[in-house]
Design a binder for these strands. Sequence first.
DNA 1: CGAATAGTGTCTGTGAGACAATATATG
DNA 2: CATATATTGTCTCACAGACACTATTCG
Lengths: 252, 252
Amino acid sequence: MGTEEQFLQDYQPREYPSVALAVDLVVFAVAGGVLQAALIRRGGHPFQGALALPGGFVRADEDALHAAWRELAEETGLDLGAHRAHVEQLATYSDPKRDPRMRVVSVAHLALLATDGKTLPDLNPGSDAASAQWQPVHTVLANEKLAFDHQDILTDALDRLAGKMEYTLTAARLVPEEFTLSQLRHVYDAVWGATMDPGNFTRKMTPVLADTGRKEPRAKGAPATVFSVDKDFISPPLTRPAAAQRPGAADS
Amino acid sequence: MGTEEQFLQDYQPREYPSVALAVDLVVFAVAGGVLQAALIRRGGHPFQGALALPGGFVRADEDALHAAWRELAEETGLDLGAHRAHVEQLATYSDPKRDPRMRVVSVAHLALLATDGKTLPDLNPGSDAASAQWQPVHTVLANEKLAFDHQDILTDALDRLAGKMEYTLTAARLVPEEFTLSQLRHVYDAVWGATMDPGNFTRKMTPVLADTGRKEPRAKGAPATVFSVDKDFISPPLTRPAAAQRPGAADS
DNA sequence: CGAATAGTGTCTGTGAGACAATATATG
DNA sequence: CATATATTGTCTCACAGACACTATTCG
């Protein structure tokens, strides 16, 4: 383990290997059948004008997860009292050259925002962003170059979300606390870029959901039953359609 | 109290707090049908005499993964030329109080060491460890209190390994480059604490393995075919027997 | 009624799990 | 031959996937 003891032996205090610790946020939400991410347009150098993930530094008295929640509110202007959100750690990016200005190690987080599938909450750019907007994830990944290593982070976040949706009810975090099966199904469609069969989806999901007894009227068609999450794990897992099969899968 | 703490605070730049960045290593290997971890016995305070994970600080010019490889050699004395190993990032632990003396943020890594299932490579304790030894993971988790938050890290590492073995050939990283189906099966047995049916295991694994054409004689019984890894993913996944079902599953 | 959506029924192929059977080695 | 191990065969049950069908609502 040799954390500080070893350090005190081997290093002079002025050579203390310290870094700036940041968090970067991948905030996902679904609207219009498309997976969207909250991205900012950089106002300053480097990468001026490029899209980037919101983020900021971790304070001395908080851990990374706390910093992620704080920055989620500060950098995107999201009212977390009004929107259900879930935040989890993704991975840590520590290439010494990832920020050309100085060494910044970033603990990336995945944030999932509950929406009704139609409206997205307004974003208010934080201090150093020129603007903050929802962007369609698949389109951005295909067409834009993001600042720093944010392209990698966004890709990893999407992989993680898509993978986790196979064997957990993570998709329910992108939907209100109580939801219909169509709403949930549209999340799978948006993230996996596939179209699930409504009938089979119902049969697969019913055992892990709790029926609230209520029905929700639809614009057209029969009213849908309103469910909430019952079990956390889907076992055996849902399999991704071949069309949206597992990507290259980075290993280490 | 802490002279180091005082010093660190004086040194912190105004703009952003800086932290000491470390790596901790969970090194797994299988021997005697049991999953083992390379743990050190702490020589100094705090947690003197307790078991802990090997680890160390990340240097200014390297990323966390590189530091993990370096510390794997330095802190455990493992000869990586002689042993096939795989290292991947696990998660980052950033509780400001996780080290009572000062702030150390640690990027934990999972390292898998290939063995023949019988012998474990020798460990040579690094600078500040009293000793370094292989310890049976399940026993340690059940009976010992580890230093710092290393109990959490070890638990997370085991969860990660056990989970990944369901849908990838990660188990093959704990076995020589070429191996028999029994060897691989014993890895599953050791990690999952279950007993796989040899026949069904063979049928499930064969499609993702490459037959080398060679056979390996056994002490008793028929010689076993020697395989190497062909595909990385097992689809549909292998399901863990109910006896070794998925644990409590931390969420965020 | 026609259109759209929710949910159920039906059939088929794949494959997991239990376990028997066969083959090949050692002593 | 007795025993141990590898590997294949067999049977059954669960279930995914395709898709038809019924039910319920709106205009």
